[in-house]
Structures are given as C-alpha cells and as structure tokens.
Write a protein that binds this DNA or RNA. Structure first.
Length: 118
RNA sequence: UUAGUAUCUCAGAUGAUCGCUUGUGUUUUUACAAGAGGAAAGUCCGGACACUAUAGAGCAGGGUGCUAGAUAACGUCUAGUGGGAGUGAUCCUAAGGAAAGUGCAACAGAAAAUAACCGCUAUUUUAUAGUAAGGGUGAAAACGUGAGGUAAGGGCUCACGAACAACUAUGGAGACAUAGCUGUGGUGUAAACCCCACCUAGUGCAACACCAGAACAAAAGAUUAAGAUUGCUCGUCAUCUUUUAAGUUGGUGGCUUGAAGUAUAUAGCAAUAUAUACUCUAGAUAAAUGAUCAUCAAAUACAGAAUCCGGCUUAUGAGAUGCUAAAGUU
C-alpha cells in the first residue's frame, strides 16, 4: 500500500476512539480522525483493522482481516490523505456469512458517509 | 456384500489480472526464486540453547515402577512376559512390597478381621460352654466336592481338585514357563499414608548479547504483611489498581544447515543405527502467504508457524491395502 502506514501504538487507538467520528455499516464500524499534524501537504494515511476473538478462531479472523485490507488497497488511491482510519468488525459478523463483495459494499458506504472521497 | 480390526496415503491443481513477506541480481524500479500443518492447536512430558546467589550443607519436595532393546533424552517407541476383554482379526494393562507399621472398607448385613445374631449340641434349667454344617446382605464373608470322625460340628483326618509360597530340575539373554517335591490357610485397599529401588537445581527466546537515545509524568485509592527472589535455614526489594496526559517502551543479533530431508546399500524380527550420493526447503514482529475470474464431475473437514527438535493428547474430510467374523453365489 503506497500511501499508507500501519497504526501500531495502543494510545493512538484510544485517541481515535475518543476524538474521532464513526459510521456503522451492516458488518463493520469505521472510525476516522485527523492525524496529529494535519495539513494539506500530507501524503500518507494511517490504517488498521480490528477483529475480536468472538468472530471465530484464528483462521477466520485472519480471513476477515485480509478481506478488509484488500478492500482498502483497492480504494486507497481515491481517498483523502492525512487521516487515521480504523475498521472494526462487529461481533455478529462471521466469515461463513460474508464474502468479498458484501464487505466491499459495506466499507465503501461507510467511507461515503464519512466524506473521505476526494 | 455387510460388520469389524490394523496400517498407510492425500489434504486441491493449472492459468490470467492486481497485491503482500523474505532473498538474489540489476539498478532506482524492475526481473527471478521461495513462501503454514498433520495436527502449526493443547502446553502434558523429554532434550538442545541461554542466564542465575544450583554448584554451602542437607532435609523436604517431585517423578518413575514386569523384562530386554532403541534413543540426545523421556512418563516415548520396538519386541516379548504375566493378567484381562472379545466368536475372531485384534485390543487394554502405573504390572515392586499388604506376616515393617498406621489408616480406611459407604449402604446393606449378625459379623468387614481378636467374626457367635438366628440356628445346632451338651450340661444345668433360662444361664454357661462348644460349634462356621445352614441363613437373607454385599464389590468382597474365612478353599471346593465326597468320605471318615463327632454330643453337634469343623482341613479335625483322608482322597481328588483349585490357590499361594519356598526349593530342585529342564528351557530361555531375561521377565517367566513346564514338571517334581515340601509347606501354608495370615479378606481387600499402596492412582491411602508408607517401605524399597532408580532418577531429579530453577527460570524460559518477553531467555540472553550489542548499538543508539531518553530518564525513573501527575493524582487518587488499597494493602502493612503479603508478594517476588528456590519449599525451609540466611540475605535483598515495598507492591498493586484506577483515572488523566497522542509521555517513553527504538534498532540489530539470537533466527533457522538441522539429533535436517530424499534415494540406495548393509546390520537387525522391529524400534533404530551406519555408510555413500544428492538437496537447501517460511522466518514475520499491529505480525506476510491474499482478492477476483476461468477450467478440471465436485473442491466442502479440522484448522494459521513465532527459538528449535523428539513424543503424547485432543479436533477432523476423503481414499487405499492386509486380516477377521457372518451370510450368499460359483
């Protein structure tokens, strides 16, 4: 992913959940806030995916993470820069009920809600 | 054919487009190569490796428990012995010691280990003595059958049989087996304490080493005797929780060439060992191995490496082969 770095620190997650805005879809919740030194010249976004242990065993969780990452990768070039983005799966989301296209539609709707497209 | 039993194999493949991690070469963004499991899981054992107030002394504690072999080691494996289950193939088995000592044996039953409640016999008359033949219970009740004997009975005696122990002989490397002879009648339980024999320091890659840089944020509450350092003898350190604050927690090595794999030969019933040749086969760190489409009849179970090996246990889809039993056909 060319324009994106990973979020690694726990306190960053806390900050995003506290200060940011969010949008709920059918399967996911997307949290967004501006980065610390936000201005027009930023070229990178920060991105992360969260999957709870209640969504299944490690194989199923890995698959959900990969699906979300793939969706973000395809949409990456159309997004505004300089934001923190966190995708959280709901507890009820199971990998059996979901395929790539339903997840993609869901996430794109959330992005439109949050006005992330240029 | 049905049912069972043992062993083994596989765990989707190919192509196209777009991506991820590592390595190599070009060179500054491209090319090539490799990229999860049989259990990667549980963390139940054993080792390698690393460190330490183990190397001072012991005690305590823990583990194992038929024999022989294999192995780096094991609680694992192989081949056997005894015991048990099954018509059978086959499977299960912590399988030393109960006359060293202590404890326990629910309910039922007269009684659970110094057996006398009922019954039987004798004498005296309402008590004493003898007696385990008969009696319901129970997981377990004082060897079984027959004869003699007796007041009545009883291994009290005898015959046959079963059990246990010692000795002798034969076979076997051994556990042990077979036979003979002598003796015994002292219930079970040691995955109860215990005794005997053998083994055993602790903590785990968040180990540990190096480089760079920063420096022990504030407030509130709880515990003062608990926790950590080896369970004890001696010494050392106060610790934890919550809230607030984009406070720090960086990088490199350790890290994958190994008790490795594949093939062949030799030794061995086998586990396994030795020799030769060839091969290099994940190494991430908010954590790679993915998405979509097409074809193959269909691709669907359990499930994701985290220092590395050897096992065990548990989860689970499909298939093959040998053997056993029953029924049927030729």
């Amino acid at each position: 992913m060319k324009y994106t770095l990973r979020i690694k620190k726990n306190n960053v997650f806390k900050y995003i959940f506290k200060k940011g805005i969010y949008s709920k879809g059918n399967f996911v919740v997307v949290h967004v806030c501006k980065t610390k030194n936000f201005n027009q010249t930023n070229t990178n976004n920060f991105f992360a995916v969260c999957v709870s242990k209640k969504n299944g065993n490690s194989v199923k969780r890995n698959r959900l993470k990969r699906l979300a990452r793939e969706v973000y990768r395809q949409e990456e070039e159309n997004l505004k820069r300089g934001y923190n983005i966190v995708i959280i799966y709901k507890k009820e989301t199971l990998s059996d009920k979901v395929n790539f296209f339903t997840i993609k539609d869901d996430i794109i709707n959330c992005f439109k809600d949050l006005d992330l497209y240029e």
